[in-house]
């Protein structure tokens, strides 16, 4: 296995007027090349903040704990991402080794600069090449993501493209620098299902072709089931369960993961009631003590749940869960 990135003990707080907010709390995970990781959780679970940390791209009021370590493996050795501070060093990571695509492509393209010009700018920023060469690569990438007539589309502006085309152009731009890791933050949420299906197919093809790793942030477990190799579930900044996609969806262990699946309307059983996870996600200013989920959990096992943070238990070598239900138990 070709390791791509290691995240160890990532803890991230934001300094705000209302106090110190913990957005990510002691999160560790790894990703290999050619692997797709689905990162799921409700709004406020810290999934986007975690993804941005991979590029050291959070706002200036972010405080990383001293134990936090993110190592990006490249052909010329590991890069300690969080130790980078000079723009020239960060450039190697941001838009170079790691690219990101967003939910709203209209907001990500500059409205008054043509798509091609933006792609050329990015290419020239990251590699020595002439404008003509960069333009050629831009056209080639637009063609690759299924945009018809790319040599004339390249001179169009974002508003001239439909939603699906814009998201394809966004992907073309993100991949033009041949990143090793692609972070996709809800890339299909704003699209119609038929277009979503096309974009998902495209991303899967590109993973194979470029042997990239993808961190796929989504709230849609159906999308995860169709794209990811493994799933990480986050709640209030903590990674509460991680495992291979089949195992987590068919045999979820954490009560929160089970709750998410029970809340989902399923087409194979129209009579099944929709069971919401009770209550609302607490404010990050009022993080519960002990297990962060204990205020909404239906399976509280005892005082331990509100007193101590559950340790990570390994269900099998690839599947881990942080819940007192499994404390000290061997795989069952």
């Amino acid at each position: 296995m070709d390791r791509l990135i290691d995240v160890e003990n990532l803890t991230l707080q934001f300094r705000t007027d209302e106090g110190l907010i913990t957005a990510v709390d002691d999160v560790s995970f790894s990703l290999n090349r050619g692997e797709v990781m689905g990162l799921v959780g409700e709004s406020g679970s810290g999934k986007s903040v975690t993804a941005k940390a991979l590029m050291h791209l959070n706002a200036s009021n972010a405080i990383y704990s001293p134990e936090s370590r993110i190592t990006l493996h490249t052909d010329s050795g590991g890069i300690d991402v969080l130790s980078l501070s000079r723009a020239a060093d960060l450039k190697v990571v941001r838009g170079g080794a790691i690219s990101m695509i967003f939910q709203e492509p209209m907001a990500s393209f500059a409205p008054s600069i043509s798509i091609g010009k933006q792609m050329i700018e990015q290419l020239q920023l990251h590699a020595e090449m002439s404008k003509a060469q960069a333009r050629e690569i831009a056209i080639e990438m637009l063609d690759r993501v299924g945009i018809s007539d790319p040599s004339s589309r390249v001179d169009q502006y974002a508003f001239e493209l439909s939603g699906g085309m814009r998201q394809r152009a966004m992907i073309a731009m993100a991949l033009s620098t041949k990143p090793r890791l692609l972070i996709a933050d809800e890339p299909t949420t704003a699209l119609d299902v038929t277009i979503q299906a096309q974009v998902i197919d495209l991303m899967k093809e590109l993973v194979d072709e470029f042997n990239m790793g993808i961190v796929f942030i989504t709230h849609d477990l159906g999308v995860v089931a169709q794209t990811a190799d493994k799933v990480s579930v986050m709640y209030l900044g903590r990674l509460i369960e991680e495992g291979p996609v089949r195992e987590v969806i068919r045999d979820p262990r954490h009560p929160y993961t089970r709750g998410l699946l029970a809340a989902l309307p399923r087409l194979d059983d129209l009579d099944a009631p929709l069971t919401p996870v009770p209550g609302d996600i607490p404010s990050p200013l009022e993080r519960p003590t002990g297990c962060v989920f204990n205020t909404r959990c239906g399976d509280v096992v005892g005082p331990a749940c509100s007193a101590s943070v559950p340790l990570e238990e390994w269900i099998d070598p690839a599947h881990r869960v942080s819940c007192h239900l499994y404390a000290g138990k061997e795989a069952s």
Partner: peptide, 18 residues
């Protein structure tokens, strides 16, 4: 209907695409 992402990971690639 076919474009709805199925919760079953084994359904990958089965859907007909528009």
């Amino acid at each position: 209907f076919s474009a709805i992402p199925s919760l079953n990971p084994d359904d990958r690639g089965r859907a007909q695409r528009l």
